[in-house]
Design a protein around this nucleic acid. Structure first.
Lengths: 173, 173
DNA sequence: CGACTTGTTCGGCTCGTTCCGAACGATCGG
DNA sequence: CCGATCGTTCGGAACGAGCCGAACAAGTCG
């Protein structure tokens, strides 16, 4: 009876991770797969994940690839036995967040800023008050992106503990 | 000719905002509506946004509601003239981010932690090494969420400038 | 070499989202 | 009170995302 209770509790937590995944723009399946890996005492292969989660093999293949891309699981392309690749979870959440920020937000900001800079160049050739207004607004956008970018770079280079301490010390003045 | 060029440049920037919106989980229309509001010298009503964007009136209605919910535009339920509500953009991006984090991430973390705490309570009644392992992992999850939550609370209470300065000072040791 | 296991890719189904047009309220000036 | 204007809501079409099963490729062990 206690064994049932234990797996019920684990199911609850895994389901909770699935819901969290949806909030942050991932699929339910991604959350569940991560949850199963998180509770597993050893890395799991795709057939094992199929067994544990009930998803189709193709789904597991796609989901594991996505999770690997964003740094939530690692591929141990391994090794000896019959199984070829095995997955283990990245358990440092802030590290995951940092990875995602670096890959997506940072890239997006860079391309947007390139667009803004090109736009400003083109506006130099245009006369009139309205054009100057537009240029001012675009410069303001650029400044915002610039600040977010530098903050982002600083933040992802530190642990949560360091960041909390930094802000605490800053507040202490 | 310069007038064409000016609107072409603005179109470019607005389109860029539309693409950015997609990256961050919003619709293209939301990005474009925000862009039009951003370049407008005065708050715009729904018919005006229809005119400027080409979207259907219903689309504008839904999009403005969504943008208002997440704090990207403000409703100036308005005064005097024939028009009733008018929208103006929130131009402080970090403020927008903070708003979203407070509304979504923070709420999500709280509900998840409630689930984790309930799970730990239930596991107290279960014996065995495996149950103890599960409890350890859940406690580790809980600790991660706790740290992210406190960091989040600290971060959204400061401006980007303050945060950058705080980290810079911290690094200066 | 041939049977088996593992992982990827492909086509199809389903469901949610986005956007539209039309119908429906609600508010204001005359 | 009536017409006009503004905003919301409803039903539907087009599109994309998630998931599945089946076919396919690649490597392993007998």
């Amino acid at each position: 009876m206690t064994e049932d209770e234990r797996s019920a509790v684990r199911e609850e937590v895994i389901e909770s991770l699935a819901r969290s995944a949806e909030v942050y723009g991932l699929s339910r399946s991604a959350g569940r797969v991560y949850g199963v890996l998180y509770f597993s005492s050893e890395p799991l292969s795709i057939p094992e994940l199929v067994e544990e989660t009930g998803y189709a093999k193709s789904t597991i293949s796609n989901v594991t690839r996505k999770l690997t891309r964003i740094g939530m699981v690692r591929r141990r392309s391994s090794g000896g036995g019959g199984r070829r690749v095995r997955f283990e979870p990245e358990t440092d959440f802030w590290f995951i967040v940092g990875d995602v920020l670096r890959q997506y937000a940072h890239r997006e900001m860079q391309t947007t800023r390139r667009t803004l800079d090109r736009a400003l160049d083109r506006l130099d050739d245009v006369d009139g008050e309205a054009a100057r207004d537009d240029a001012d607004r675009i410069r303001a956008l650029d400044a915002q992106y610039d600040q977010l970018e530098t903050l982002l770079e600083l933040a992802v280079d530190h642990s949560t503990e360091e960041l909390i301490e930094a802000i605490d010390q800053y507040e202490a003045d």
